[in-house]
Nucleic acid binder design. Structure first.
Lengths: 366, 366
DNA sequence: GTGAAAGCGCTAACAG
DNA sequence: CTGTTAGCGCTTTCAC
C-alpha cells in the first residue's frame, strides 16, 4: 500500500487536496481539529508526498551535489576525501538535504556528468572540489544559474565562491615549529604542484623560512602528489642531502617518507624529524605518532553545506569566501620531547587557533 | 539563458513539443531532416530537459541510493567503505545513474533518512550496507515497493536479495595457508561479532582448523571490531598465550595487531606470522607487506549496481543472491618466504579463484 | 478556514 | 512522420 496520492488522503479525510497539502507543509491556516484528523490518516496510511511532483512545482529538490575528481585512485587511498564526504553528509542530514555524490575519474566521466549536474530539476546546488581537472565544469557552472561553491581555492578565482583552509598559515605553523626546535637542515615534501593547496603550503613554508633568515636548499625540497608512495620516493631523493627535519604537506606522504627513512637505517625523530599535514586518524596511531597540522575537515564540510544553502535560499550573488584556521598538533615525530634546546610542550598539546575559527574575507597573520 | 522549456525549443524549430520530445528521447519516428534541425537548436541553446518533470511522468529518476551505517567514525577510518563507494559510483557513471549517499550515524539519522529514502519520486532503488543497525530500515523497505539490495548477508535473510563475498571460503584460504606453513599455535582476531562478515569468517576458520584436526585454543582468539585500535588491543590479550600465527579478519586490525607485536619486542613474521583480510591498498605498502585475502571490493560495487538495475528494470521478485570469490595474496607477513617446511610461492603470488568469479545461488567448497 | 482551478515541464497514447 | 490531448502528483493563488 504505497502508491497513495494527496487526493486519496483528502478523500479519506473528507477534505480537499489543498487542505491536506497545507497540513503537510504546516501552513498555519488550518483548523486544529481538521489538522489532527488529517495527520492521523497520514500516519496510519504511511503516506509520503511524491518528491518529483513536489519538486516540479516548488522548483526545489533538496538535493545537493558533491563533485570530487578522483584522479587516479586517490579517493580511497587518501582518507582526506572520505572524511570530507562524511562532513558534508553529516551536514546534509542536519539540514534535511539529500547528498548526491559524483566521483569523476576521467574526461568521459566529466562529459557524462556535467550535463546531469547542471540540468535543472535535479540539484539545488553544488559543491565542487577544486582541481585543475575541473576547469570545464567550473566554466559551465559559471554560465549557468546553478548555485555552487568551490571546496578549496580554485585555480581561477574570479567570481567563484569558495571555502578553504588557511594553507599558508598552516605551513607557517609547521615550519616555525621546526625552526623553533632548532633544526638546521629543514626540507619539504610538496603535494602535486598543480593544486592550490600545495602551492599555498609551499608559500607558507617559504615565508616562515625567510622570516627566520633561513635559506632553503633546493635539494631538500622534493615534489610528491599527496600519496604514500610519492612521499616515499620524494624522501629517497632528499635523503642524500642530509636533512634533519622534514615538513610533509600531507600525513600520508609523511608516512611514506618515514618508511624510506627507516629503510635507510635512520630513525624518527632522532635522525630526521617530521611534521605532517591533515591530522588524519592514522596520524595518531602510527608507530611513531605524527606531529601534524590539523585541518578541521569535518567542520569544513559542514560549513560548506551551510554556505551553499545560504546561496540557494538567499540567492547570494557577491563573491564570498570563508577561510578556516588550522592547529599545530604536537606528538612525537617532531622530536619536541627529546630536544633540549626547546621547552617542550606536552605530548598531544595543541597550539594556536581554536578549532572552529572562521575567518571571513581574508586570513590573519600568525 | 537556462530556463528554456520544451515548448520554447518547439517554437524555435517550428514543430510541436512532442517532436522535440521524440528527438530528445531518440524515438525512431522522426524525419531525419526535422531531427537535425531540432538537434541544432537544442545544441545552440544548451537546452536540457527538466528532470523533475520528466521523473514525474516517467516514474523514474535514474537515481539510486547507497545507505551506509557509519557506526562510530568508521566510514573514514576503515578504507573499506570509501572503496566500496567508489566502486558503486563508478558503476553509476557507466549506467547513467546518479548516486545519492546516505551516511547514517545514529538513530536520529535513521529516523530522518528512512522516510526520505522510501518516498516515491526520489530513488529508483537502494543499496543498503548490511548491519544490525539497519533493522528498521530493512523492515520498512520490505513492506514498500522500493527495489533494494543488501550489501553483505543481512542478519535476517528471508526475502532479502543480497550480494556478498564468500567470507567462509576466504577465511578457509587464510587458515589453510597458515596450517600449510606449519604453524602450530594459530590464533584469530575477529571483527565485531554482530556482523555476519565476522561470523562467517570465524566459521570458515573453524572449519579449516577442524578439517586439519587442529584444536582452537580459546586464549588465542580475541574479538575486535574491524578497527586498528581494536586489533592492537586484541593482540595484547592474545600475546601472553604465545601464538605463532594470527589470522586477522581485517587488514586494518592486522596493522594494529602487528603494532602490538613490535611493541612487545617481537617481529613479524619471524616470531608471529600474519594473514589479513581485505587487501586494502595499505596492505601492500606497510612496513612489512601483508599477506591477505583479497576481496573484489570495487567489482562488488559494480555487480551490486548491475543487480539492482536488473531488479528495477525487470521487477525481479525472486530472492536472488550473488556470492563473489576471494583470493589469497601471499606477501611477507605470513613468513612463506622464510619457512623451510614449505615450498614457498614467490612473493605477490596469488592463489585460487579468478578475480571476478561470481557464484550465483550458493558457494562452492574449497 | 477551506475548496476549485490552474499549472509546474514533461511523456505518451491517439489521431491523422 | 507529426500534432493534439491528457495527465504524472503536487503547490498555490483566488474566491468564498
Amino acid at each position: 500500500m504505497d502508491n497513495l496520492k494527496l487526493e486519496d488522503i483528502a478523500k479519506l479525510a473528507g477534505v480537499s487536496r489543498s487542505t491536506v497539502s497545507r497540513v503537510i507543509n504546516s501552513s498555519p491556516n488550518v483548523d486544529p481539529a481538521t489538522r489532527k484528523r488529517v495527520e492521523k490518516i497520514i500516519d496510519s496510511t504511511g503516506y509520503h508526498p511524491n518528491l518529483a511532483a513536489r519538486s516540479l512545482v516548488s522548483q526545489r529538490t533538496n538535493i545537493i551535489g558533491l563533485v570530487i575528481p578522483k584522479t587516479t585512485e586517490t579517493f580511497f587511498t587518501d582518507p582526506y576525501f572520505p572524511q570530507l564526504t562524511q562532513g558534508v553528509a553529516f551536514a546534509c542530514n542536519n539540514n534535511h538535504l539529500t547528498l548526491s555524490l559524483f566521483l569523476v575519474g576521467n574526461e568521459e566521466d566529466e562529459a557524462e556528468i556535467t550535463p546531469r549536474i547542471t540540468r535543472r530539476g535535479m540539484l539545488d546546488g553544488i559543491l565542487v572540489q577544486s582541481s585543475e581537472k575541473m576547469d570545464k565544469l567550473f566554466k559551465k557552472l559559471l554560465s549557468s544559474s546553478m548555485p555552487y561553491l568551490a571546496l578549496g581555492r580554485p585555480q581561477e578565482e574570479e567570481a567563484v565562491n569558495y571555502i578553504d583552509v588557511d594553507n599558508v598559515r598552516g605551513a607557517k605553523q609547521a615550519a616555525n615549529h621546526l625552526i623553533g626546535l632548532g633544526y638546521q637542515r629543514i626540507g619539504m615534501i610538496t603535494g602535486a604542484i598543480q593544486s592550490t593547496a600545495a602551492t599555498d603550503r609551499s608559500e607558507g613554508f617559504r615565508q616562515a623560512m625567510s622570516k627566520a633568515q633561513r635559506k632553503i636548499e633546493p635539494g631538500l625540497v622534493a615534489e610528491g602528489d599527496f600519496s604514500e608512495i610519492s612521499g616515499y620516493e620524494a624522501m629517497k631523493k632528499i635523503l642524500s642531502h642530509r636533512p634533519d627535519a622534514i615538513f610533509s604537506q600531507s600525513d600520508i606522504m609523511a608516512i611514506g617518507a618515514m618508511r624510506a627513512v627507516r629503510e635507510a637505517g635512520l630513525s624518527v625523530p632522532e635522525d630526521i624529524a617530521f611534521v605532517g599535514y591533515d591530522d588524519l586518524p592514522i596520524a595518531s596511531v602510527s608507530t611513531t605518532k605524527l606531529t601534524t597540522i590539523r585541518q578541521p575537515i569535518t567542520h569544513f564540510g559542514i560549513k560548506a553545506v551551510e554556505m551553499l544553502l545560504d546561496m540557494i535560499e538567499n540567492g547570494t550573488k557577491v563573491a564570498n569566501r570563508m577561510i578556516l584556521g588550522t592547529e599545530l598538533v604536537i606528538r612525537e615525530t617532531c622530536g619536541a620531547g627529546i630536544r633540549t634546546t626547546f621547552s617542550a610542550p606536552k605530548s598531544e598539546e595543541i597550539e594556536s587557533v581554536p578549532n572552529s575559527l572562521d575567518i571571513i574575507g581574508g586570513t590573519t597573520d600568525q
